[in-house]
Amino acid sequence: LGCGGGGGFDFFGFGGGAVFPIDSDEFVALLVEKEMDHQPQRGYLEKLELGGLECSWRKDAIDWICKVHSYYNFGPLSLYLAVNYLDRFLSSFNLPHDESWMQQLLSVSCLSLATKMEETVVPLPMDLQVFDAEYVFEARHIKRMELIVMKTLKWRLQAVTPFSFIGYFLDKFNEGKPPSYTLASWC
């Protein structure tokens, strides 16, 4: 099923009722509100600052995710989403202390989910495991971990990200004119 990104919303009254165009203040207000649902649990930052298990898991996981991300040349949104899933998961899950394999499995699963959400060409989970693979997981194990991640995130994978706001602010900076090349290159 085809699904392009972005896309403005027009004012045809076919749906009936009020319609917010994608760049309206109301739409952005709604985004800000919804963004709250896509953030790590309270206290996560403090946990990270204390340098607990989450902190080392996060560092290693992001390290690995970034390497694979650049290896496959994925887009910026799938990197952002993978880390968003990772943070939200780490903030709401009690990590087992003696399972270092799970950290790797979690990294693979977050990246795998993010690419399936965003990328047009998606490598198989087996093929994602290209760097420093101390453990290599079979697809069925990754599937199970993906399910656990999705369940923990309450199936809210379509996260509101900074990318969701770019169009709105570009429009504001440029007083409604299409962005110039110079402006776009700064973003």
């Binding site: 919303f9 076919f14 749906g15 009020a18 319609v19 917010f20 985004l31 919804k34 649902d37 199936w155």
Partner: peptide
């Protein structure tokens, strides 16, 4: 609102 993109999630 009807017709707008649905940002509401399904908790």
């Amino acid at each position: 609102p009807p017709g707008a993109l649905n940002l509401a999630d399904y908790a």
